[in-house]
Amino acid sequence: MSWIRMNSTKNQIKEVILFCVVGCLNTLIHLGIYAILVVLHTHFLLANIIGYLFGLTNSYILNKVLVFKQNKRSLAYMVKFTLVNILTLFINSILLYILVKKMHFHIIYSQLAVTVITFFINYLGSKLWAFK
């Protein structure tokens, strides 16, 4: 019985590590597009949404197949994953707005800080609901 628990714990650790790796790639995509658009004088909230959508597309594919191992085609997974990410994007945008417009923090550093916070919301929503 303890072997089963130990194996389950190893699988959970592997899942979290994979989610982090995929999350880092998504973050690089998101922040890369965000930074490029900000440099091109796109409004920072619009740049955030556009960058997030690119990261979201990558995230869905890699999390579905690699992290949560859901290989069947399901509209339900996609809808739930999208809802989790809309909530995450909403929280991301509100926090970004507060840091940039109200607290006058740097646009790029603010996005990095907000990404750390919203990572946990996204993981829990994906694990506990979207890919369940």
Rank of each mutant, 00 (worst) to 15 (best):
I61K: 02
V22H: 06
Y97L: 10
K127A: 09
N71F: 11
A113I: 15
I49P: 04
Y97A: 02
F19G: 06
T88I: 10
L28W: 02
T118L: 06
T115G: 05
L83W: 05
Q111P: 09
M1W: 10
V16N: 01
Q70P: 00
L28E: 01
Y52E: 10
N92L: 09
T9K: 12
I49R: 01
S93L: 08
Q70G: 03
V100G: 01
S110T: 11
V21I: 15
I94K: 08
L128Q: 09
Y34P: 05
Y77L: 05
G51F: 06
T115C: 07
M1P: 11
V79E: 00
N7H: 08
I17T: 15
I4R: 12
K127Q: 06
L112Y: 12
V114P: 01
G125A: 04
C24A: 13
F90Q: 00
L99Y: 01
S8Q: 14
H106A: 13
I86L: 15
M1G: 14
W3D: 13
Y77Q: 05
N11F: 00
L28K: 00
K127W: 03
S126R: 00
G23C: 10
F68N: 01
L112G: 13
V16Q: 07
G23T: 06
L46K: 06
N63F: 04
K102R: 10
G51A: 11
F120N: 02
G125I: 06
K101D: 15
F54C: 15
N63A: 09
N26H: 06
V114C: 10
K64T: 10
I98R: 03
F119Y: 13
V114F: 03
L37G: 11
S74P: 08
R5F: 11
L56A: 12
Y52A: 14
N85G: 09
N26E: 07
I94E: 09
N63H: 12
H106C: 06
Y77R: 01
V39D: 14
F131V: 05
M103I: 12
A76S: 11
V100C: 02
L45Q: 13
M103H: 03
V79T: 10
G23R: 02
S8C: 00
H104S: 14
T118S: 08
L45C: 04
K102S: 11
N7S: 12
N63S: 11
K132N: 14
N26G: 15
K101P: 00
I86F: 13
V84E: 04
I50G: 04
L28C: 13
N7Q: 13
Q111C: 09
K102G: 10
L95W: 04
A130N: 07
N58D: 00
A130L: 07
I29D: 03
N92I: 01
I33E: 05
V79N: 03
I17G: 05
Q111L: 14
G125L: 04
M103Y: 07
I91H: 03
I29S: 07
A47P: 07
K80S: 02
T82C: 11
G125C: 09
I94H: 06
S126D: 11
L62C: 12
A113T: 14
K10I: 14
